[in-house]
Amino acid sequence: MEIPLAQEVIFGLVIGSYIALGAIGFTLVYGLVNMINFAHGEFITIGAFVGYFAVAEIGLPLPVAVLVALGGTAVVGWGIARITFEPMNDAGAVPLLLMSIGLGLVLRNGIRAIAGPDRRNIRTDVATYRFDDLGFFVTSQQLLIIGLTLVSVLVLHLFLSRTMLGIAMRATADNEDLALVSGIDTRRVRNAVWLAASGLAGVAGVMLGTAQAASPTVGFGQLLLIITAAILGGAGSPYGAVAGSYILGVAVTVSVPFLQRLEETLALNLELTALNSTMAFVILIVVLLVRPGGLVSAEVRTS
């Protein structure tokens, strides 16, 4: 069956929204804590389980569960970062990266050991709105995730441009040493970053829990997409990360039928579509090699 382009774009926007919620946090941590956090996917997983618990066990409605996951994951993520990353803040990029890999292993498999490998879907009522003339449909769930992402971006924007702490964050991202000299409490900035990054990851987690399921690897599965989006948007730039996420989301979904057609015309069976997730890696590498600074320019080269 041929899926209309409009439908593909909607799927792309949905996927882009999941990625964006993860990528904003990832890129904030990268820009302000100077680390690549390989455990960021696990923060999403935590959010998914918090959301599942809130809906399935306590019986809260989904919007409330989203808030619970936001707050719960923010605190948990911040607490974990305080114990693991904060004490070795000056150790450099590679030790922090290794630390986050260890943390990711512990969280991912710890959750799996406790909760088992099962996939727990967060059940919600889904309404579907059809636009048959235009050839597409959207579900209430899809609208919710897109809406939540837009609200998050808006709140983030207001925070970064209107509050003292947000302005301090931007100053720190530009030049940490200068920020220190001018009396900005960079420790406080880092605390805020961890709270924001994990909170947004939590929201992404609940929404992934409704669309897919809460499972031990639900967040980890998003990680390379998130990294790709963040780099595409210029590592360290939250607005860039949002743009990068949507570009990536749409690119991945739209490329599927394109690859199918390519295979048909070439009369080859290369199973290109099976490479859908591999596509993200390819995009990542191409971005790093061709335009390492992303859409805007960031320093990723040694000299």
Binding site: M35, I36, A93, V94, L97, I227, I231, L284, L288, P292, E299, V300, R301, T302, S303
Partner: peptide, 9 residues
Amino acid sequence: RLRDDFLAI
């Protein structure tokens, strides 16, 4: 020529 952490990725 990429920086350490990007080479890792």
